[in-house]
Design a binder for these strands. Structure first.
Lengths: 150, 150
DNA sequence: CATTTAATTGAGAATGAGTCTCGATTAAAA
DNA sequence: TTTTAATCGAGACTCATTCTCAATTAAATG
């Protein structure tokens, strides 16, 4: 069930490049992050590890997820409720998110035209684009009917 | 120095429409938000009020800012450090943000093409767009030179 | 204007995500 | 092996934000 993919090798390489150690805990966290396609926060990941009997401390989960973000093996998503959710990048290409503000449903989208415009905007201001957040908040088809009752 | 503008009337109207009361505290918070064009978090606003001798409790500041967001008299900006900053919308039209990840400098931008594409994406998935977050994180011209030292 | 009633307020306690500390452990270089 | 610095874990800590609840007040009604 464990995924063996190039992601983990890239993680190891990134760690070594920074003179950081490749530890079982770090690998375990990365494995857990990759094993699930849902958008989860650090706490969710910590609990999932506990439930599968893998003891990695909460602090280490937070620390590792931060590394994964830095190495761009993971993206971070602000779901509007003050938490950050993480999502791996394995076989899926880059995408942004459309989030229902009533039921929380998330749709992933990608729009090349927007991607292009972002680059152009950065160039225009002399910035070098590193990452971006682009989230559309709205009401999904079903939740539009509940407008009044909300 | 206090700004009298149509914003405050819209706020009162919105409150009345929801059967909420127009209170001095709510108006004071709105006034403070409008008096400053910087991007500030709720605590900043609370402190600013204290410093000008206006006693509005922290809880009320948070509650009011939440209302302003709901009524779209204010926007909320995730600066990547886990806090939310608020910005009024008075005489300025909608814009998004380009943020330097090293020095924190913020540039405001607007791109009609992106705005259009957002609407189209929402329509495509049957969503009704309510608001969006679009932030580009990168290195500004000056900070690109410090890349190595970071 | 006085009365009534539900919304609002403030002070501080509670929550909770995320960070930090520090002694014990361990990866990995030699 | 030995050595050494990086890492780990447990839980304390931080601090932004939310909640609680008794006292206050806006504003509708008589």
């Amino acid at each position: 069930m464990v995924m063996k993919n190039k992601g983990i090798e890239e993680f190891k390489t990134a760690l070594r490049t920074e003179d950081l150690k490749v530890t079982p805990q770090r690998l375990t966290v990365f494995e857990e992050v990759c094993s699930n396609k849902e958008h989860r926060d650090a706490e969710d990941i910590f609990i999932a590890l506990q439930n599968s009997g893998k003891n990695v401390s909460r602090a280490t989960v937070y620390r590792t997820v931060e590394l994964l973000l830095k190495y761009e093996l993971v993206t971070r998503l602000d779901t509007g409720d003050g938490k950050w959710k993480y999502e791996h990048w394995l076989d899926c290409s880059h995408h942004d998110h459309l989030i229902c503000i009533r039921c929380g449903k998330i749709i992933e989208f990608i729009d090349e035209e927007i991607e292009d415009r972002q680059e152009k905007i950065c160039n225009h201001y002399g910035y070098k684009l590193v990452r971006h957040i682009h989230q559309l908040f709205g009401l999904c088809g079903e939740c539009q009917n509940y407008n009044i009752a909300s």
